[in-house]
Write a protein that binds this DNA or RNA. Sequence first.
DNA 1: TAGATTGTTAATCGATTAACAATC
DNA 2: TAGATTGTTAATCGATTAACAATC
Lengths: 216, 216
Amino acid sequence: MEETRELSKEISQAVISRLPRYFRYLGELKDEGVTRISSKELSDLMHVTASQIRQDFNQFGGFGQQGYGYNVEFLYDEIGNILGLNKTHHLILVGAGNLGQALVNYMNFKRRGFLFRGIFDKNPALYGKKIRDIEVQPMENMEQFVKENNIDIAVLTIPKTSAVEVAGILSNCGIRGIWNFAHCDLNVPPHIQVENVHLSESLMKLSFLLKNEELE
Amino acid sequence: MEETRELSKEISQAVISRLPRYFRYLGELKDEGVTRISSKELSDLMHVTASQIRQDFNQFGGFGQQGYGYNVEFLYDEIGNILGLNKTHHLILVGAGNLGQALVNYMNFKRRGFLFRGIFDKNPALYGKKIRDIEVQPMENMEQFVKENNIDIAVLTIPKTSAVEVAGILSNCGIRGIWNFAHCDLNVPPHIQVENVHLSESLMKLSFLLKNEELE
DNA sequence: TAGATTGTTAATCGATTAACAATC
DNA sequence: TAGATTGTTAATCGATTAACAATC
């Protein structure tokens, strides 16, 4: 099961989840003109321990210098590279409802190299409608489009009733990752990466926190 | 710091994060007419260990019966209660852009008792526009509206530049929780709960996973 | 050089899993 | 009663924190 895994040192989920936040803080520091920072200063800023920061960065090799700290711009670039942000990603949107349209219209993704290339929906009323210059196409076109346009990532903003089926089709035409907004778990082959955004579960978590706060 | 905390047994973040997923699976089982389930069966379904399921449920007292397992409907209701879904929550939307509008239009929240009561934006062009029968109001009205309408939760879909300031205002007018979609961390008093949905960080995580997959 | 701060090892803490007695 | 499965304790595993030698 784990045969080839050992080639690149396994990075824990906990560390991976923290990387984008480091990236965000370093980007802000860079924009503010800060050139160097110590793990202690960053720890005060981010409310995590300096020890954890150093441990995390050292999963990927030494980015700092004893007695000096870390060069902000260098560290920012390195973490960006680790996150794969130095590459352009080609996306399709599957499901052109309110949420899907909002995501396509959200321009920050483009800035980071995530480019929407195609939009698909099963509602004929939407065919030909343009969202940010991209025409909505019938679902039937999806498979061929993914194959022909070197699509990396599919963004799934469709109801859970069709999500599993669509994920199956995508798995068979070369997609590499699925950003899943449908309220279900997808069962795809292990070489396909899935990142779930379960909004209603996030809201339930908030609800729990409110209820728990009452008791204290 | 931790004085009153011990009144209700502290539940770990890890457990809290899993509750909504249990709730989703139990709801589906209930809809399929399944009346009882063992931790082993649920574990096969959800791809987690049966031991973890039993440990998690027992954080809240015994919901099962030896030799029988768990009653699906009872367990569903209990977890719903733990999550605070037996109560109605009153929400406001702050920031009526694409994403905000998509959230208001998303009807599943209503089904779970999360009701949008007001919508606020700083763009005068949107004032009076109706989204699901709710008129967009000027930001200036927000503070009073929250006080007068018993609002629990503010959904923040505004740029990070104004998010911190708005969170400050909300903190002072009785809001209990913030569902934060802005790309920043909010520093609010500890009695106010914050649940972050950082979409770009989620996408970066997916990007990392794709890049890492290449190496294997 | 002296001071600062990393990289890294060791200690601690917490979460997950295994095991089994309790009991339906 | 016998069989099944929970509730719960104990063992293991992994992640976080502390400490400090290395070194810029």
